[in-house]
Design a binder for these strands. Structure first.
Lengths: 239, 239
DNA sequence: CAAAAAATCAACACATTATTAATATATTCG
DNA sequence: CGAATATATTAATAATGTGTTGATTTTTTG
């Protein structure tokens, strides 16, 4: 997947000009290119595989477009691609949200929104998609020095000895260890490990990190869970 | 045509270009390589043992191809290999499904489809096949410590003593024991043991696990049925 | 076709894990 | 050095998944 060389293109589908402008501004500030349309037909045209080099990286979709139901559009896009779609609607009920996800949307935002939140969601969705693609051929076993994590078994070994870890802790460790030296913010970890539907406290991460450290401490060796002050955590490898 | 090393190759046999493109995109997203053909003759050529290094891992087959009946193709493939085949047809009746399975297909999907469902089915079939291959050369008898399972006789022995187990329970135990230490989710077990046509409650698994535990308890020794909290079950071997 | 066995479903009790909250400790920067 | 801010730690609570039982439906067998 290599369409996006320079800027990432975000497709805004809305029929209210002020909304489009607000989003366009926020997007530009964060280094995205904004493209806007106001009908469902145009959305489908721009998302079709016909012109892959112009394909947007993500679609912001208002479901109440004049010509076509937004959920249908989402479903149709899903029929031929996994292009990330975020539904942004004025409806703030659970049913609408469930519907959106059922139709294959990647996230759901209610209007009116804070553009900063929208940007955060966009970045989260894009990163999640990238991570999924990155998980090279569904690599389920990773190894660093004396640590072996086998996600087929949901099992971590230190020096060949199994250490009991609850699922969430293993998933967190696996995620960090899959991308060694890369820092993840708490919000990223919540998104990546807990999932975007989850809206919990980011202190949760601290607690899980602490437990991992306790269980893995002393045996570390060539790696450790490092706190990057003011940012987040990373799985650091020592040369 | 250029092939990539490492990726699993999926052969798409369809004569509608948009369908092919939709699948190709979804496949690439999930780390598969897509190869497409639009005639039955080509399917057979690419699946023949002539060029084993280019053999696809799985075939997605539209049965209404211009030159040849898809069910016939499936049968012919079965004549010389166990290559997984998924039939994807617009017909949504039971008869068509039964026919597909009778001709040796591994799964049946009706068009129009959600590509994510297709991907899920592909992965399920591939996993099932891998698991079967793991049971080296259709190993029908496996042995762990004092437990012997003989699927020719549908019989399990503990310490040489036959213990009566109903078919489903034996199948479940056999499946788990064939892949020791590997975690299976309830959905995977439903897919692998009950079959993809089954849409039942995943609590069913719990009940069967419980029965197995009751019948096998105390005699265990070097293995046991382990619950992996929030994930599923595994047949765990103790060193 | 009836009886028996098995498979499935549904309900509730139970256990473990996940999360929150509160407090203590550490780090940064003026 | 000290105030402000961020993280570590611990304990308590909430959430969630599983174990277990028995009733009901389905399938098999005689």
């Amino acid at each position: 997947m290599q369409y996006t060389v320079g800027m990432e293109r975000i497709l805004i589908a809305d029929d209210v000009q002020t909304t489009i402008e607000a989003l366009r501004l926020a997007l530009r500030r964060d280094g995205f290119e904004a493209v806007s349309v106001s009908s469902g037909a145009e959305v489908l045209r721009l998302c079709s595989a016909a012109a892959p080099e112009n394909l947007p990286a993500l679609v912001l979709l208002e479901p109440a477009l004049p010509d076509k139901d937004g959920y249908e559009i989402c479903k149709e896009i899903r029929a031929f691609s996994d292009l990330p779609v975020i539904i942004m609607s004025a409806r703030d009920d659970v049913a609408a949200k469930v519907l959106a996800l059922a139709f294959g949307a990647d996230d759901y935002i209610t209007k009116p929104f804070d553009t900063r939140e929208v940007m955060a969601r966009i970045k989260a969705v894009l990163r999640r998609v990238r991570v999924q693609n990155n998980q090279k051929q569904n690599q389920k076993i990773i190894e660093h020095d004396k640590l072996v994590i086998d996600m087929n078994r949901y099992e971590a070994k230190l020096n060949g000895k199994v250490c009991e870890l609850p699922p969430k802790e293993i998933e967190l460790l696996f995620h960090l260890a899959s991308n060694p030296n890369r820092v993840f913010t708490r919000d990223q970890l919540l998104d990546d490990v807990w999932g975007f539907e989850y809206y919990g406290d980011s202190r949760t991460i601290d607690v899980h990190i602490k437990r991992l450290r306790t269980k893995l401490e002393g045996v570390s060796g060539k790696w450790f869970l490092k706190t990057v002050w003011g940012v987040g955590y990373k799985f650091e490898l020592i040369e």
